[in-house]
Amino acid sequence: MAIIIKILEYILIAFGVAILGLIYGGIGRKITARIQNRYGPPFYQNILDVLKLFGKRNEASHGVMFDLGPVIALTGILTSLMFLPLGSSTPLISFEGDIFVLFYLLVVSPLGMALGAGEGANPNATIGIARGLTMMLGYELVLFVSIIPLMIHYDTASFYKLVQMQGTFPNWNFFPFFLSAFAGLIALQGMMGLQPFDVVVAPHEIASGPMVEYSGRFLGLLQLWHAIAVIVETGIIADAFLGNGGAGWFILKTFSLFMIVIMVAAIFPRFRIGQAVKFYWKYPLIIGLLGFLVLFIWR
């Protein structure tokens, strides 16, 4: 009985997070428009987009794997949502070492997409996949380096424990570990695939990369994946560095992080893929490694 309630609760959370992510995306589009001196779409525009995509018919298909690609992508992000503490609430699955599992699961979605788009055999998709996987080498490393000092400091590899132990406002990890937080924020920019790191989905260059052959409902699933990924990715940084709190605080924190990312994205042009990875391995990685010094000074 208890497990059924837990599963229902999780389904509810997943729906809520998807809609929240879509609304974040809509507000992000509005903010970008205002920065560019435009009026911008309504904040619920992304929800309409997804509804429309699910209402389309006779999409192109290029084989079984092509159809399953978006499903794997969505499954991967929904599974990583199980490990993420939303504010101070207990995640569905929590054990010692779940940070590593969470980070592995974050890779499942891009890989699923790569498998699916690969079967489409469009050259643009192939370039997009190659760029996406190369990009992952850049930001994953920085993200790990920014989280490891916290795991050493609290002597735990359980995300839930890590969030619980850091406490509320004045005890945020952000203040002692500000260097790691800064590196994490730069990694977030690449993880969300926004400018200056939007080499993967570069609409005017490689015709939206891995998504080039997808249409209709498949594209709708990919949009949902992006929406949930927004919450999961900002949620990781918010949980790790910005303390714990209720669901309301969690929404406020993830939204502020999302706003920072969107505003940076609105004013930057695009790196080339080589430049992007080089950038990650130079500056944020050095900043992240300097973050380890806090362990010696502050403890």
């Binding site: 589009r29 428009a33 009026y39 911008g40 429309k52 939206s208 080039v212 997808y214 249409s215 594209l219």
Partner: peptide, 22 residues
């Protein structure tokens, strides 16, 4: 598309490929 007339107000955005567009 851009600031002066801004068609994104109506939810119309340019897409890269025919597969994705209506």
């Amino acid at each position: 598309m851009t600031s002066r007339y801004d068609m994104e107000r109506f939810g119309i955005i340019p897409m890269a490929t025919p597969r994705q567009s209506d």
